[in-house]
């Protein structure tokens, strides 16, 4: 195999690895936004998932406990946003920001002892047979188990949203809560449910960083990935399949800039590090406009009060 092909495959594999945490977060945010709740606390939720996952795995020596802890931590953090926005009708933008600031502080305090500690990570596990497929095997099937789980989550989330009764209910709550309520759905209960599910998924996304990708706890290790995920939700038109694609594309940019850095280039590291953020702005410019208005849930960001009309 020639060197160029080898390099391309390894970059693609790195893109999948780097994109996985975003896949989880984007799908979590899609579920929440489809129910009408804009959760800008994603960055903080991911971070608390990363810390809880790392800590639980380290203390018990079993990364699966880390997964459990990350799911719970993500759901709990997200629940704060739920209580504020669903029950107390608070503004969703500012509430999400408050959550990110709060979670950053909590992780700073409780994560202090974990900085620089060795963890109990998930190791790479090549799937038999599949990993031997030329090209595809190298790109997709030589990762850790959380990457493989995300492969299952992507089509599952899509199928759930667009092909099941529960998915239809979820979407109708985000599109027209008044109508949904009149059909006998409890808008607020459904929103609470997806706040929890979405938060848990975002927490798991964070845990992929600390349990596999970086395999350690670093303060603020999500480094804006939560915000990037929110932008990618718009780019993906609130569709889990497209979301996966753009997450890997984003992972690719991350992987490429890292490769260029490691190659000892003349381009300063700081300029390369800006790339993902510049890319996110470009993505957002492309995604916004008419297309965004068409695919965004109509009641996104608006608190639901029974009997109150738009």
């Amino acid at each position: 195999m020639d060197a160029n092909l080898l390099l391309t495959l390894s970059i693609l594999a790195a893109a999948v690895r780097a994109g996985t945490c975003i896949v989880y977060a984007v799908i979590g945010e899609i579920l929440m936004e489809r129910s009408g709740i804009l959760n800008l606390g994603l960055e903080g939720i991911m971070l608390s998932g990363a810390l809880a996952g790392f800590t639980a795995a380290k203390m018990t020596g079993n990364p699966w406990n880390g997964v459990l802890a990350a799911l719970c931590a993500g759901a709990l953090m997200s629940l704060i946003h739920g209580v504020l926005c669903i029950s107390l009708k608070a503004g969703q933008v500012v509430s999400g920001l408050a959550l990110t600031i709060f979670a950053g502080g909590v992780c700073g305090v409780f994560g202090k002892k974990m900085v620089g500690q060795p963890g109990s990570p998930f190791h790479n596990w090549n799937i038999p047979v599949l990993s031997d497929i030329p090209w595809i095997g190298q790109v997709f099937f030589r990762h850790d188990i959380l990457v493989y789980l995300s492969y299952l989550l992507i089509p599952l989330a899509w199928y759930f949203l667009f092909r099941t009764r529960a998915g239809l209910n979820l979407r109708s709550v985000g599109e027209n809560p008044q109508a949904a309520e009149s059909l006998g759905l409890s808008v607020n209960k459904i929103r609470y449910l997806y706040i929890l599910v979405g938060g848990a998924l975002a927490g798991l996304g964070g845990a992929h960083l600390s349990l596999a990708y970086n395999n350690q706890w670093i303060d603020n290790m999500t480094a804006g990935r939560g915000w990037i995920a929110i932008a990618l939700v718009i780019f993906a038109g609130w569709n889990p399949l497209k979301a996966a694609l753009v997450s890997y594309l984003f992972g690719g940019i991350d992987a490429v800039q890292f490769r260029i850095q490691a190659s000892g280039t003349q381009i300063p590291a700081e300029i390369l590090l800006m790339m993902p953020y510049i890319f996110t702005i470009i993505v957002l410019i492309i995604a916004s406009g008419k297309g965004e208005k068409q695919s965004a849930p109509a009641a996104l960001g608006i608190p639901f009060i029974p009997g109150e009309r738009k």
Partner: peptide
């Protein structure tokens, strides 16, 4: 010797309560 992020916790909490409390005043 506590981490500086302590003040972030307080900041976030204050904002939570301001936001949550608004309902008591406007509804």
């Amino acid at each position: 010797s506590m981490p500086v992020s302590v003040s972030n916790i307080l900041q976030g909490l204050i904002l939570f309560f301001v936001l949550g409390g608004e309902i008591l005043f406007s509804y």
